[in-house]
Amino acid sequence: MSQSALPPNDQEMTLVQHLLEFRNSVTKGILAILVLFVILFPFANDLYLYISEPLSRFLPEGTSMIATGVASPFLTPFKLSLVLAIYLAMPFLLFQVWSFIAPALYHHEKQLVGPLLFFSSFLFYAGGAFAYYVVFPLVFGFLSTAAPEGVTVATDISLYLDFVIKMFFAFGIAFEVPIVVVLLILTRMVSPQKLSHARPYVVVGAFVIGMLLTPPDIVSQTLLAIPMWLLYEAGIIVGSAVQKARRRKDEEDTNEEENDTAKQNPTNSGQSNDKASPASDETDPYAIPEEDFDNRYADQLEDDEDWDKAFDEIDSEFSILEQEYKKRKEAEQAEKDAQNKEAKKEDDDLPSDSTPKDSSDKPSKSDK
């Protein structure tokens, strides 16, 4: 990789340095999880009681949750503490991911990381809180009343924990939809208009995701699909506002540059403005400014040019071979035609055996 292909003020790192940096990031993440686990494990039973409260309130009187496995009374709180440690360490883990890829980012890209980490963590925890305080009471209230008569609802603690973990992460990831939408708009991969036109497909997709990630009931499916759709709309609104602000700032910067140029060259300002006006009218609002282009992929461009030259040479060689092949075929065909003509001429020169003999050669009856 050449120096021009690197971000400014950064130097190329070797593979060993990348691996060491990756090892440090992974080690810090594991240590953070272990520290949180050590802190949470003494309170594992209390944490499980708090997690199981949305279901316990709907259990019939005189019943409680059960443990069908031999080691479930110990392993289930242990698993809860470990998963909760990972859940709480998520912002720090995301920060470690960012610190690993930060050397490859430019300054304007690094400016997005802070708000991105904050809002993604906030929305992730907001999804978990929404699942616990809104979805769980409605779902468990519905499921507890759906039990047939004579059936006692006694949920296994391990199965309940698996269900809760799945729901927490499902709603946490679903609430990240605005982040994805805003990033798509800011990177100019998709325009807000196209995202608005795709709204019917998004609504259907939200209900499909809700069907796959939630229990087989319409309540939890709807409670996951509707927030996803609303957050999608919020992402479009926020992304459009940020895009307009950035476009306005770019226009102001362009005007300032034009004014500075006009002050430096007052005699040519009129001509430059006349020449620049048609281009400004035809500017694509979603076009990437020239200053955003960099030389990060300079080596790749050079390699592409080399490959293009190589392919052009191969094409020219193939065309030459094709012409030679055609000439050889034409020569062979001409030789075959000449041989056929000679053979036909020889056949014409041979005496014909099919001519009838003279009648005088036949013996007469008198001779006999």
Score class of each variant (00 low, 15 high):
244 K>W: 11
244 K>H: 05
245 A>C: 06
246 R>F: 09
247 R>P: 09
248 R>D: 14
248 R>W: 03
249 K>E: 14
249 K>W: 03
249 K>V: 02
249 K>R: 15
250 D>V: 01
251 E>C: 11
251 E>H: 12
252 E>T: 00
253 D>V: 05
254 T>Y: 02
255 N>Y: 01
255 N>W: 00
256 E>K: 00
256 E>C: 00
257 E>H: 06
257 E>Y: 00
260 D>Q: 15
261 T>A: 03
264 Q>E: 08
265 N>T: 04
266 P>T: 12
266 P>G: 13
267 T>N: 10
268 N>I: 07
269 S>Q: 05
269 S>K: 12
269 S>Y: 03
270 G>S: 10
270 G>L: 11
271 Q>L: 04
271 Q>F: 05
272 S>Q: 08
272 S>V: 00
276 A>W: 01
277 S>Y: 13
279 A>S: 04
280 S>Q: 03
280 S>H: 05
281 D>I: 00
282 E>C: 12
283 T>S: 15
283 T>C: 02
283 T>R: 04
284 D>F: 14
284 D>E: 15
286 Y>H: 11
286 Y>N: 11
286 Y>E: 11
286 Y>P: 08
289 P>G: 07
289 P>V: 00
289 P>S: 09
290 E>Q: 10
291 E>G: 05
291 E>F: 07
292 D>S: 14
292 D>Y: 09
293 F>H: 14
293 F>D: 08
294 D>V: 06
295 N>T: 04
298 A>D: 04
299 D>Y: 08
301 L>S: 10
301 L>T: 13
305 E>L: 01
305 E>H: 09
307 W>H: 05
